[in-house]
Design a protein around this nucleic acid. Structure first.
Length: 949
DNA sequence: GACGTCACG
DNA sequence: GACGTACGTGACGTCT
């Protein structure tokens, strides 16, 4: 084993100029973190930045033997956040965000790594690394030494001096001399501080002068020499806005000048001579490399030491990174070129042709089916026609409900509806013929209404969803035709028009109808051929077959059943709300000194922050003041009466427009019930979504809103029963992340938020429990310290501390997050326990940190939310059968609200039904998955939904 | 159609 | 050195 050591003892050699290398450690690690791919050490901790840092130090130390190499060296770190600049300006660095969570634990390792190289690590309270560096630069220059600052921080460029001080940007392997500084700032190092002051710096919150960016700042300093020079000559400035800004913000400019000025006369924490490089003892370094599992560097050490140049070390870094598991991210398949000839489709208007198509489908064993109707709402829609496809460009359209487009045209020749249905029924129900549809739930309902139970079937929309959820393309037929085949489908608009003059499909002439409808079936069949092989190779078959595909009839039946809503009750609520709203409006206008449109956030913002002159408004990207609930609550708590009134007004108008009024208008006149539509592909995580109307967001959180729930009632002779999973996402998290305390708590039936409160805060009083509840959810969403702090109303340091403590107490959670992120980065998607994928590429690799961060948080959450969705879907699929088996055919499943199922139960059968429902829901994972936690289900019932909880 | 806001899990 | 700040939805009203 050899050690890294200096070839000579340079300090004692008169002929050799001492050369001090000052490494700006803090800034390096930030850059390394973002530039280098994530790397995990053998403790499972993210150490990408530490690896980058270690490799850089190695490279520097290895340069000892070179002419320009160091004789002295130190790593400079930031010791504290508070410095003299905060005394000068309390906003200094005030908005600087906390470092990324997986970077924080790497900071201490920087010191460990530095010690491993036996290089001094210097930090001093009250001084920023930049200042310490400046002090050493001055002292070294005075002693006649040369200095290299290892950093690319623009503030440090003030110190560059040809022949004495340069900078080394190790990431780009670039020396920065005076010329380079001049290139960047248009002025020499001595004027860099002046330019920086005018520019300002949003990260450090150096104010600068508004409207002055790098270009303007450079120009001004070139012209006038300094900030003071610019301010003195301000009258000469031509541009009026610039001149005004300079005058108005003269003090900010002077303050900025002082903020960017480096302290260079503080006493040195360590004397210069102490920084001498004597050689690097191998043991501590070896131990460090072993501990971190940096094998390549270790091998190099063992195998003869770093006799190499920097270039080799850089290769070494690359080699190490290359040896990580190769990226398994697969881009979506390239589109397949297809020729669609809609003129080949046949319009079927006689029995012989119909029988011919049925025979062809039966002979082939599969057929694509699509229904056309007069309305997008399948509950009330009437059939216009049915299309079938058996091969590329081989499709037909069977009109059954077409009428003349206008008074002049006659009803076209077509087969009678009932005859067509009678002929198709055996085919559609034939177990030997696979029916292929796109968004088959719609067609399933249409046929169900005709007494046809379509089976077996495949749904290409669901297949697309199970293969490609989260990818950038949509799963509807038109989008898929484009993304999979680069084919532009005939647009519905071109047939039926838009707006008031839009016609229904049953009025479209048969020729066009045949082209449109035939194409839908043709494309669906082509999609099936394209997706089918992928289902097995990409492991989507399991979630499709076990979770999503069987759900179609289940959801279809729920939609058809609908839920009864008490119209008179809603009308009464509407009236009460309206009266209250009127009163509030008067009082708001009074408080605001005049009427305005309260519902306009823009006008409201202008009234509050303009007319009433209130302070502290945040502005959004549109330049308008934010008037969301947080802001108004803040104002209200400061005693602004108007804000409270507006909040009340908002709540009431929301309830009236979205619920009491809208719900009345969607009551189906035939059934007297409300029929939502559940989308199986609406949420990337695998959750259902509900629309037209959305019955998954009926109010419950406030007393007033809750009244809306009372409008959802049972038919006479029935009660509404609600069954919901208790804490399902936390249970899944406890299982997936393998957290013993949480699993134990769930097994014992303990209150999970109390357990968390005890772990985090030592005791579980009411307040701590609420805090713990917030933290429990926040963590699963990938919250930042800042975000948690703002939600809990505590300083961000406390948010940070709580998160740290959470991870310390529940290390499994941190491991889960790290593992999930590592997986999604290398594979491009996440998976639920049942294998459902959600794709996050390319956002997970976005160079935009905000986009990437968003993808990371979503990826942390997706397996948990998605597993929960898988579970309740499985329960739903089994529910009707289980109820029937228990003789409870009269029990109807009506709604799903993510972790809740709502049923209509015949009077007197509540107990039995509750027992079956609870059992089916609680055992939803079995037998596929054995959960380490029990699934607890709470069941309640009553006359209306409000009473069922 | 974009945006802001707010209802739910 | 910047970016924004908790995940997933759908609906309504305003404004352009």
């Amino acid at each position: 084993m050899s050690e890294i050591e200096t070839a000579e003892a340079p300090a004692t050699e008169k002929t050799v100029t001492n050369h001090l290398y000052l490494v700006d450690g803090s800034s390096y690690i930030f850059r390394a973190y973002h530039r280098l791919p994530p790397l995990t050490n053998r403790h499972g901790m993210n150490v990408g930045a530490v690896y980058g840092y270690t490799a850089m130090l190695w490279k520097l130390a290895d340069g000892l033997k070179q002419a320009e190499g160091p004789t002295h060296m130190a790593v400079i770190l930031d010791a504290s956040e508070h410095t003299h600049r905060n005394e000068m300006y309390d906003q200094y660095k005030a908005h600087r965000p906390p470092p990324p969570e997986d970077l924080v634990p790497q900071f201490p390792l920087i010191r460990v790594a530095t010690r491993a190289f036996s290089i001094p690590c210097i930090e001093k309270a009250g001084l920023e690394a930049d200042d310490i560096i400046a002090c050493y630069v001055m002292a070294a220059k005075k002693a006649g030494w040369k200095v290299t600052i290892v950093s690319s921080d623009k503030d440090l460029m003030q110190l560059v001096e040809d022949g004495a001080v340069d900078m080394l940007d190790t990431m780009n392997d670039r020396r920065i001399d005076e010329a380079a500084v001049h290139d960047k700032f248009g002025v020499g190092p001595e004027k860099v501080g002046e330019v920086l002051a005018l520019m300002g710096d949003s990260v450090d919150n150096v104010p600068g002068v508004p409207g002055v960016g790098p270009k303007t700042a450079t120009q001004l300093i070139q012209d006038y020499g300094s900030v003071e020079g610019v301010l003195a000559a301000v009258e000469e400035i031509k541009k009026p806005k610039l001149k005004q800004n300079l005058i108005e913000h003269a003090e900010a400019a002077r303050l900025s000048r002082e903020l960017v000025r480096l302290v260079c006369d503080a006493p040195l924490p360590e004397p210069l001579d102490e920084l001498i490089l004597k050689g690097i003892p191998p043991e501590p370094l070896k131990e460090f490399l072993e501990d971190q599992g940096f094998k390549t560097l270790l091998n190099r050490m063992v195998g003869g030491g770093p006799t190499n140049t920097g270039a080799t070390v850089r290769n070494d870094v690359m080699a190490a990174l290359d040896r990580r598991p190769a990226s398994k991210i697969t881009e979506p398949d390239a589109p397949e070129k297809i020729e669609v000839d809609v003129s080949k489709y046949e319009t079927v208007t006689d029995e012989a042709a119909l029988d011919r198509w049925i025979a062809e489908a039966r002979a082939q064993g599969y057929v694509a089916v699509d229904t056309e109707t007069d309305c997008i709402d399948c509950i009330i829609a009437k059939l216009a026609g049915i299309s079938l496809a058996t091969g590329p460009n081989r499709a037909c359209y069977i009109p059954v409900g077409h009428v003349g487009g206008d008074l002049l045209s006659e009803t076209p020749n077509q087969l009678p509806l009932q005859l067509v249905l009678d002929r198709l029924k055996p085919l559609l129900e034939d177990p030997a013929v696979l029916k292929i549809g796109h968004n088959l739930k719609y067609d399933w309902v249409m046929f169900d209404k005709a007494g046809i139970d379509v089976a077996p079937y495949d749904d290409t929309m669901l297949m697309s969803f199970d293969l490609d959820a989260g990818r950038s393309f949509g799963h509807n037929l038109t989008d898929l035709a484009k993304s999979q085949f680069e084919h532009e489908c005939i647009s519905f608009k071109s047939l039926c028009g838009t707006g008031a003059r839009q016609i229904t499909f049953d009025k479209v002439p048969l020729k066009e109808a045949t082209e449109y409808a035939g194409e839908d079936a043709d494309i669906a069949l082509r999609l099936w051929h394209r997706f089918k092989p992928r289902m097995t190779t990409e492991n989507a078959e399991r979630v499709y077959k076990r979770v999503d595909q069987p759900l179609i009839p289940v959801i279809g039946r729920m939609e058809r059943r609908g839920v009864k809503v008490d119209r008179d009750y809603l009308a009464g609520l509407s009236k009460t709300f309206s009266e209250e709203i009127s009163k509030l409006e008067e009082r708001i206008y009074e408080a605001a000194c005049g009427p305005f449109t309260i519902g306009s956030p823009q006008q409201l913002g202008d009234v509050l922050y303009g007319r009433l002159g209130l302070k502290g408004g945040r502005k959004g990207k549109s330049g308008h003041y934010s008037t969301d609930v947080n802001e108004l609550e803040r104002l209200a708590s400061e005693g602004v009466n108007c804000a409270r009134l507006v909040l009340d007004w908002r709540q009431l108008t929301k309830l009236r427009s979205t619920y009491t009024e809208a719900l009345q208008s969607v009551i189906n006149p035939e059934t007297g019930r409300v029929h939502t539509s559940f989308s199986l592909t609406g949420a990337q995580t695998g959750r259902l979504s509900s629309n037209d109307p959305n019955l998954q967001n009926i109010p419950i959180r406030t007393e007033l809103g809750r009244k809306i729930r009372d409008a959802f009632v049972a038919e006479p002779g029935y009660v509404l029963m609600s069954a919901d999973y208790s804490q399902i996402e936390l249970r899944i998290a406890a299982h997936m992340a393998d957290v013993p305390q949480l699993k134990e708590a769930f097994r014992e039936g303990a209150d999970i938020h109390n357990i968390t409160a005890e772990e985090l805060f030592g005791s579980a009083d009411r307040e701590n429990r609420n805090k713990a509840k917030t933290v429990n959810f926040a963590i699963l969403y990938g919250v930042s310290p800042w975000g948690l702090a703002s939600r809990m109303g505590v300083p961000k340091e406390e948010g940070q501390a709580i998160i740290a403590r959470y991870f310390e107490r529940f290390p499994g959670i941190r491991q889960y997050i790290d593992d999930t992120l590592q997986f999604v980065r290398s594979h491009g998607y996440t998976k639920t326990l049942f294998g459902r994928k959600t794709h996050f590429y390319p956002n997970i690799k976005s160079p935009n940190p905000s986009i990437r961060g968003g993808a990371e948080r979503a990826a942390i959450n997706a397996p948990i939310q998605g597993t929960s969705a898988d579970l309740i879907k499985r329960a739903m699929t089994r529910m009707d059968g289980a109820l029937a088996e228990a003789g409870l055919d009269g029990v109807r499943m009506l709604l799903q609200v993510h972790d809740e199922l709502v049923f209509e139960v015949p009077d007197g059968r509540e107990q039995e039904a509750a027992e079956v429902v609870r059992r089916v829901m609680a055992t939803a994972a079995e037998p596929a998955i054995k959960l380490d936690v029990p699934l607890d289900v709470e069941v309640g019932w009553g006359e209306h939904w409000g009473a069922a909880h």
